[in-house]
Each structure stands twice: as C-alpha cells, then as structure tokens.
Design a protein around this nucleic acid. Structure first.
Lengths: 193, 193
DNA sequence: AGCATTAAGGACTGATTGGTCCAGAATTCA
DNA sequence: TGAATTCTGGACCAATCAGTCCTTAATGCT
C-alpha cells in the first residue's frame, strides 16, 4: 500500500542504545543520535515520536538485552551453586572494565541522571533494577549456604547485592582504578562463602 | 582601591552546590545557577571563570563538607567500635532518603554523568570517593572483629563498602523503594557482625 | 500504468545554551 | 573631591538544542 521502512526499528533502537550508553540521556544530542542510528530527523520522529520516547524504548531494549543476560546467568541451572552465579555476574562486570569498557551500566547512569525528574524514566530504571534483584534472590535460593538463611535475611542480602552492583558499575564509569573494583568483587565473593 | 565584591564566594559556591546537586552538571543551566546563587552573569564569570570551573569548585566544596562529615564520623574515636561507625554512615544515608532527600550523593551523580568525558571532573570524583574509602578502612581497623583480618581482605572489604555506598546513594536518586535501601543497609550491618 | 499512501531527506524554527562585552555604579586612596 | 579601579547588571552573541513541516522518493494495489 505504501513505501516501506528502509530500516529495522529494532536495529535502530540498538544503535541508539550505544549512543545513549556512552553519552547519557542529556549528553546525547539529536545529531549524535541521527548519526549513530544512520537515519534522518524525519524518519526518527516518525518512528519514535521524540527523544524521550526513544530513550524509553532504549531502556526497554537494554532491559530485554543486558538485564536479561544477567538474569539468565543468575538463574542458569547449569551452574548448580547460585552463589557461583552471583560471583560470575560480578566478575563479568569487573572484566568488562578491565577490558576498557568504562560505560558502566545504562540503567545505573540513567538512575543518576534524568530519573530524578522524569517519572517514566525512573519507573523504567526501577523496573530493570528490580528484575535483577529478583534474579539475585533466585540465585541465593539455589545456594546451599544461603537457602537455609531466614527468608528476611536472604532478601536483605539480595537488596545489598543489587546496590553493590549499581555501585560497582557507577564507579567504573567514574574511572576509578580497576583494582578497586577487583578488590570489591573479591570481597563480595568472600562474603558469599 | 576599588569596588568590593557584594557577595561571599564561599556562600555562592554553596548555593551553586545545591543547584548542581539536584539538577546534575548538564541539567543545571546558567539561568538556574544565577537564580540559585543570586548573582548575575557578569559577576559569576568574573569570579568563577566558567561553568565547569564553578563545578570543580563545587566538587571541592562538597568534598570539604559532605565527604569530610562522613570521614569525621568514620574516624570518630568517641564511637569505639569502627563497625558501628560504618553502620551509622549507612544508616544516615538511608535516613536521608526516608526523610525525602532523593538527591543522592553529588559525587556519585557526577560519577555517572560528565566524569565519563572530563578528566578533571573524573579526578575530583575519584579523589572524594577514595577519601571516603580510606576512612572506611580506618574504621575497619578500629573494629575488633576486622582488625584481625588479613590486611588484604580488610582492604578488599573497604573497597566493597565504598561501592556499596555509591550504589545505595545512586539507587536513592533513582527513587527505588526506600525499603530496598533499608534492607540493604540491614544486610550490610549483618555482614559487619 | 497510475493512483494512493507512506517514508526519507533536510531546510527551517523558536527557544535555550554557555559565554562575551560594555556602560554605569560603587568603592578606595590620594 | 576626583582619579583610579573593580564590580554589577544585562544586552547581546553565535552555536546548538529538540522538534516541525514540506517536498520528493519509493512502494503496493488496482
């Protein structure tokens, strides 16, 4: 019936994610986005309404992608001890930094930035972090050592670990010395013993 | 010899801190700052050169003020057990949120934001966080339980705790449910037992 | 083939950005 | 009191911001 789109929206959102991830929400200008996504203003606004809506799409995409990868790891039955899954999650985060990725976690940066003022963004951030927290909780139940803790204490521990995760990834973005992150991860690992 | 300044630079920096604290670096516009500081463009640029320089002054001020308050608590000999000092630090952070302060920690927000691109800002942030980490380390030595840990493990724990602190305050800014923060603090307290 | 419909491209807009500049006010010293 | 000096206020600036709109291109259906 009419001219079809010449780009894949999903792929465009992924490219937008890269731009937002490195520049942040406010730091990513429209030219930055158009450039990174490889399309023009007309197409972007037709497909994604406006910058904020695009960012919410990106947060969703990030949640489907990065967060789900974490959740998959944390609930992976192929790793029998849940504590090992958690150790692996943190080790992965450290390894990313050691390999030069200083972008941190998109959700965590969004948390520190515009979520303060925008309810929708705050909700999306909270949703993603909560999903991760719940997955940590599942992993703890799969840890013999922690399965027998009182429920309340175990849930508290999951909340502590998600905060730890946010902190680590935020410090990565602040370019703190990598050894500090390594030490912190080592300490988390010890605490899970 | 000439007309004197009609404002106190220190006080102006403090007011600027409030603006940056709530709006973030990029989110604080010059009109916002002029408004909050109660002076005009001419005065601001004469006294503080430009926005970034002002922000660095603010980060310094924040470090002298908020960070030093934390350091003072963590090294307070009136609280004999260092672990109690750390518990108090985290409890204070939670209490701020419970009382409606959702601004988090200025350093932590700066970490997630512009520090990614500006070396000076990144250095200032890292400096402040490191000061806090060192104070945590001092507190751990003042804790009978932790004083006898191997040095390495204790230093690792200090790095973990500073990451925990950053995470908590970042999550506060993301307006995560306060109970999650409470739980996390409770868990930290338990881990220090 | 031609019509209807939608996407693409990009010129354009008004608002806002951080920053400059200068005229006039205020102060000190002589 | 007058000269020298510095600060204040705000008009002004170019650049950039997010967002609009219209022309042209491309496609599917008949």
């Amino acid at each position: 019936m009419a001219r079809p789109r010449s780009f894949e929206p999903e792929a465009a959102v992924e490219k937008a994610m890269q731009v937002f991830w490195t520049h942040g929400y406010e730091g990513a200008s429209l030219p930055d986005l158009l450039d990174g996504m490889g399309l023009t203003r007309g197409s972007l606004y037709k497909a994604f309404t406006d910058k904020k809506t695009l960012f919410l799409r990106v947060l969703n995409f990030y949640e489907d992608r990065a967060v789900q990868a974490g959740v998959a790891l944390l609930t992976d039955p192929a790793i029998p001890d849940g504590a090992d899954r958690i150790r692996m999650l943190f080790t992965n985060a450290y390894r990313a930094v050691a390999q030069g990725d200083q972008r941190g976690c998109l959700l965590c940066s969004a948390a520190a930035g515009p979520s303060m003022y925008d309810d929708d963004i705050a909700a999306a951030v909270a949703h993603g972090l909560t999903a991760m927290r719940d997955a940590i909780s599942v992993a703890l139940i799969a840890s013999p050592k922690h399965a027998q803790m009182p429920d309340e204490a175990r849930l508290d521990l999951a909340d502590m670990l998600i905060a730890q995760y946010v902190g680590l990834r935020t410090m990565a973005r602040a370019r703190m010395p990598a050894e500090i992150l390594r030490n912190a991860v080592r300490s988390v690992s010890a605490i899970l013993d």
